[in-house]
Amino acid sequence: MGLIQRVVEEHGIATIGVSIVRKFSEEVRPPRTVFVKWPYGHPLGEPGHVNQHRAVLENAFDLLETASEPGIIRDLPYKWKRETYG
């Protein structure tokens, strides 16, 4: 994922990625990343949990709008199945 993200960014399109494997993001160094320590196959969260999906997207868009340097990985604080989302 990060490889494609780098190519898109390099061609003048701002990108943001959601990561579930921090090591891959640390090594591939995509332009902007929000990381969730959640099981594979669940980057936005659990099925049907709309507010959880929105929380991840809002964090992603916040980083997209505010990042002033490349390569930021922002760790989101959400614990798997232990959070309440607005």
């Binding site: 399109i13 990108t15 990625g17």
Partner: peptide, 24 residues
């Protein structure tokens, strides 16, 4: 990287895309 990602970039440009969101 060289073929398929590059092809997507060309299509994004055609569509006037400003930002791209990536999910694994």
């Amino acid at each position: 990287v060289d073929t398929y990602a590059a092809r997507v970039v060309a299509m994004l440009k055609e569509d006037g895309v400003d930002v791209a969101l990536f999910t694994p």
